[in-house]
Nucleic acid binder design. Structure first.
Lengths: 217, 217, 217, 217
DNA sequence: TATGAATGAGGCTTCATTCAT
DNA sequence: GATGAATGAAGCCTCATTCAT
C-alpha cells in the first residue's frame, strides 16, 4: 500500500509464507500455553487464546482442526521439554543419587515453566488424548532408566511390571507433592527440604540398594 | 395451594416439613453423585442433576446457594465414607501389614462406590474447595496413624513434616495407580497383584521397619 | 416489585402458567411464519425469529428442541389451514366444477396467507420432514376426493395409482403457476384469468367427463 | 520463479494462457456441478468446490465475481444440455406422440445426469437468477413447439398465453413427479409406468386432439 | 417450598471474501 | 493467474441463575 515500502520491509516481512505460517501457529500455541497455565483448560476458550495470540478467531481454524486438537498437543509438547530439562540435570552419580537429582529437577522445571503444573494436572480430564500420550512418553523413558539401574545392580528384586507400577507411583507422588507444596497463592515456590528428604528416604530404602553403591562399576 | 392437601398426601406426607426438606436435598445430592460419577463435573449441569433427582431446576436453588456449593460438598462427604470403610478393614496386625490392608481397602472401596474415583480425581479442578477439605481430612487422619506407628516403634527416623509429605505421596500414588489400573473400559476392575506387591516392597522397605515387627507390642 | 400491583394485574397476567407457555410458543411460531415467509428458510435464523417474537434466544429452546424442529412444523400446520380453507369454498356442484373451485380457492388462500407460498416451496429443501408430512396430508385427502368422483361416475378409466400421479401433477402445476403468476415484486397478486381457463380446459377434458355432468345424480 | 519452467511444464503446458484459463474455470464449474448435485446448494461452499476442483480458494475469485455468480450459471448451462438431449429423442410422429416422447426423454435425462434433478429443484431458491434464466429458456422453446402443433392443427382452442400457462404446468408436473418417483434412496430410478400412462391420458385428452391425428400434414 | 419458563452471555465453528506473495 | 492464510461476522446452541406463580 505504501508505495516505496519495499526496502523498508521490517522484521516480520522477511519471513516467507511457510515461515509466517509456522510463526502464526506458534503464536497460537504459546498463547494457549499461557492461557491454560493461568486459567486452566476449562477457561481456555478459543476467543481467549486467539486474543492472547493477537489473531482473529477464524485464524485459529487454519492451524488446528478444532479446539481440542490444540489442547491435546499442549502437554506432550511441554512434557518433552521437561524430559530434556531433567536429563540435562541428572548427572552421572550412582543410580539412587540420580533418582534424587531427577526428583529435584522436576521441581526446578516447574518453577522454570510455571504453566506446566496446571497443564499437567488438568490434562487428564480436559485433554485425555494428550495426557495419555504424555504418560506413555514418560513411562517408557522412566522404565528404561529403572531397567538400566537393575542391570547395573542398583535395584534388585523388581520385575518389569512392578517397575511400571513404581513409575506411576513416582509420577503420582510428584504431582501431589507439587500441587501441595509448589503453589503459593498462584505463584510457584520451591519445595521444602523435608519433602526431598522424605522422598529420598522412601526410595533409597524402598527401591534402590540402601548402601547407595551399585554392584557393577 | 397446599392447604387441604394434608390428608391426601401419600407416603411422603408422613414426613414433616423439616424431613421433607432434608429428603429433597438428599435426592439432589445423590443425583449429583451419580451424574458426576458418570459424566464428570463439567457435564454435571444443574439441569442434568435436577432431572436425575426428579425435581425442578428452581428447587435446586432452595437447597444450595449455587451449583458450585453442591459440587464442593460432594467429595468430602464421600471421602468420609471411604475413611470409615477403610478403618473397618484395617485389622490389628503390625503397622506395616495394616498399611498394606489400607492400600487394598482403598481399591475395594473404589469398586464399591464406582463414582468415587472420578469425583476424587476431578474434584481438584472442579471443586477446589471441596478437594482441599477432603485433603485435609485424609491427611490429618493419616498422619495420626503414622505417628502412632512411630510411637509403637514401627517407624523410625521420620519427622512429622516428613509424614505429611509421605501421606501426600501415598495419596498421589493411589490416585495414579487407580486411574492406571482400575479403569477397564469404563468399568472398574481389581488392581493387579504386581501393583500390590510393588507397593508393599516400596513401603515396607522404605518406611516401615523391614523386619515387619514392631519394637514395642 | 411495585408493591400494590396485585389487583392491577393486566391483560397478560390473567393467563396461568400453561396458557402463558402456550402463548409464548405461539409467539415464536407466528414469528417464524412471518420471517420464513418474508426472508425464506435460509435467512430464518433463531436470532431473527426470537427478535421478531420479542423473546430471548434462550427462550426458543424451551419450546423447541432445535431450529429444525420448528421449521419442520411450519408447513404441515399451515397446510392444514389451507385444506380447511379450500374445503369451505368447494361448493356442491358437479365434480369438475368443484375441481375448478378448489383450484381457484388455492390461489385465494395464497393471497390470504402470503407467507404460505414461500414456506411451501422452500420446505422441500429446508424442512424435508415437514414437507413430506404435508405432502402425505394433501395427497391422501386429494386422492380420496378423486375416488369419490370416480364412484360418482365423474371420472372414468383412472386407477388409484394413476390418481396419485395426477395429484402430484396438480400440486406441481399449482406450485409452478403460483410462483410464476402470483409473485409481483414480493407482493402476491391474483392469478390471471387465462391461467384458470387453461387449467379448466386441461382437466375437464383430460380427467373429468367432458360434458361436465356426472353419471349418477 | 516460473522463468525457466517453460520446457519442463508437462501436459498442461501445451495450453496457452487463454486455454489454461478456460481449463481452470471449467474445472471449477464441473466441481460445482458435482458438489451441488451431491450435497445441494447450501452445502456447496467455496471451500468444498475448490477442493473438489483441486485449486486454491483464491483461484475461485479469479474466475467468478463471487459464489453466487457461479451458482447462477449452473442450471442454465445444464438446462441447455437437457433441451438438446430431449430434442434428439423427440422423433417425427404426430404432435401428441412427440409430447409423450419428450416426457419420457426428460426422465431419461435425469438418469443420465443425476446431478440435474437436485440442481433444478434447488435452484429456484439458491440461484434465483439462474433459475429464471432457465425457466425462460425452456418456456420459450416449449411454447414454440406448442404453437407449431397448433399451426399443424394438432391443438385447438388454446391461446398463446394459455400455452405459457400450460408449459408451466408441464414443468411443474415433471418436477413433482421426478421428485416423487425418481429418487430411490439417493439413487435415481425409472419412473413407474402408471405415471407415464396418467400423463399420456391427461395431455392427449386435455390438450391435443383426442384422435391422435393432426389435421394438416 | 416447588416449579419451570425466561434470560442473555458466551462457547465453538463455518464461511465468503480479501490480499500479500 | 495462482495461492492459501487471515479476517470477523454470524450461526446454533448450552447453561447457571432468577423470579413470578
Amino acid at each position: 500500500m505504501t508505495q516505496g515500502s519495499a526496502p523498508a520491509a521490517a522484521k516480520v516481512a522477511k519471513l516467507n509464507r511457510v515461515e509466517r505460517n509456522a510463526w502464526t501457529k506458534r503464536k497460537i500455541f504459546d498463547a494457549a500455553t499461557k492461557v491454560v497455565g493461568k486459567y486452566g483448560y476449562s477457561e481456555a476458550s478459543v476467543a481467549r487464546i486467539t486474543e492472547e495470540a493477537g489473531v482473529a478467531q477464524g485464524t485459529f481454524y487454519n492451524h488446528f482442526e478444532n479446539r481440542q486438537e490444540l489442547l491435546d498437543q499442549l502437554l506432550p509438547k511441554i512434557g518433552m521439554d521437561m524430559v530434556e530439562f531433567i536429563r540435562e540435570r541428572t548427572g552421572t552419580a550412582n543410580a539412587a543419587r540420580q533418582e534424587i537429582a531427577r526428583f529435584g529437577a522436576f521441581f526446578e522445571f516447574i518453577r522454570e515453566v510455571p504453566e506446566f503444573l496446571r497443564i499437567l494436572n488438568e490434562a487428564e480430564f480436559f485433554a485425555p488424548n494428550g495426557y495419555q500420550k504424555h504418560l506413555d512418553n514418560i513411562s517408557t523413558a522412566y522404565v528404561r532408566i529403572l531397567r538400566r539401574a537393575r542391570q547395573a545392580g542398583a535395584i534388585e528384586d523388581f520385575s518389569d511390571e512392578e517397575f511400571e507400577a513404581i513409575v506411576h507411583m513416582f509420577m503420582g507422588a510428584r504431582g501431589y507433592l507439587s500441587r501441595r507444596y509448589s503453589y503459593a497463592d498462584g505463584a510457584v515456590t520451591a519445595v521444602p527440604h523435608h519433602v526431598i528428604s522424605a522422598y529420598e528416604k522412601l526410595i533409597t530404602r524402598g527401591l534402590y540398594r540402601p548402601c547407595g553403591e551399585d554392584k557393577q562399576p
